[in-house]
Design a protein around this nucleic acid. Structure first.
Lengths: 205, 205
DNA sequence: GTCTATAAAACGATAGAC
DNA sequence: GTCTATCGTTTTATAGAC
């Protein structure tokens, strides 16, 4: 059952697939489930997607593009790379209740697939790689060329870890606390490129 | 195909289930897969476990007990609570190649199940709760009563996050780097109960 | 493009001989 | 306790009418 959504059916299928894969997992979600959720007869699904894997890839590809769009938005609207990182981390505060219940949709796919064989696994992984590459640039712009990649990975690791612990302990506050730790740390690292006066001497890591 | 293992069949089934659930995930592993791996006819599986869920619970229960045994070993052999924490964190260095490929067996079950309904989900979650409770005691013994639980959660979040990122980027070194960060941090927090001379003034978090 | 009907295979689980 | 044979269901996927 879907909202009264007059979108085209292909888009509706991708929407429903993304939602149900997130809620119930990749393997636990059948094409019949997705078709029912999108209010489309199951036989018609195969007109748009030849296999279940194709649909999963389309749903994941859409998430990848949403992330890419966010990076552009951050670049356009926030000048300071540190503030961009804080904003990116803070995003997870807006979804912490949902993620504490269902986990991270990207992390779930990575967990559910074989990173070495699966094309879907590689696509989902590339979303994290995209984040790492983006965050790395921000840290480089703060003058942390040497540690940029390490910091970038550590940020997403902190987020992902907090989501798992929040889901495990059924407490979305765990995500909030960990995000606060990350933001405090981000606020604390010095801007080694441009000294704007408000930079302290504390060292994070 | 199993090693020439003359264990009783129930134990062999639990072993094979734990291995295959870790490698391929809960839903992607069929009872036929497990029976074949344990070299036991599929019809015989149901003599030992009434349902697939029962077998999954038995396999997870065994992991929980292995963790519990580790805490006892750590208490018996290491006097300093800080050193106990470091040893516990360092454990993941011994499995980082395996975990970078297949993910954490506990994290995988938590990711794959519904934390609110599933009995298996609650059992897997309780393994992390056990860790948090154990680590909390260690931090309390270091005099960090107020932050003990927060620190305990943060440690496991860091470990879990690094495992996901390592699997995503297919690089077990990511786990090693994050464990190093955690251990450096553990080394840095002051022992507020007993001052032994080597305590600095840096603050972690 | 849309939908019904159904094929083909895999799955969890059971019955019952030994 | 052990194992074979199989049931009933669900799954992905296809064929073909409209």
């Amino acid at each position: 059952m879907n909202l009264p959504n007059p979108q085209n059916k292909k888009e509706r299928l991708i929407d429903s697939a993304a939602t149900l894969f997130h809620r119930n997992g990749l393997m636990a979600t059948s094409l019949a489930d997705i078709a029912r959720h999108a209010d489309i007869p199951i036989g018609n699904v195969y007109y748009y997607f030849k296999t279940k894997d194709d649909l999963a890839i389309a749903a994941t590809q859409r998430r990848k593009e949403q992330f890419a769009a966010s990076y552009i938005l951050l670049s356009e609207n926030i000048a300071d790379p540190r503030a961009r990182l804080v904003e990116a981390v803070n995003y997870y505060n807006t979804v912490c209740a949902e993620y504490a219940r269902y986990g991270c949709p990207i992390g779930k796919i990575i967990s559910d697939t074989d990173s070495e064989k699966d094309a879907l696994a590689k696509l989902a992984s590339s979303i994290f790689v995209d984040f790492v590459n983006w965050a790395k640039i921000q840290f480089e712009q703060l003058g942390h060329e040497e540690d940029a990649k390490k910091y970038a990975i550590s940020v997403m690791a902190g987020i992902q870890g907090s989501i798992i612990m929040a889901k495990s302990m059924q407490n979305s506050q765990i995500i909030a606390v960990e995000l606060e730790r990350l933001i405090t740390w981000l606020d604390g690292i010095p801007n080694k490129k441009i000294q704007l006066g408000k930079v302290g001497i504390r060292f994070g890591a």
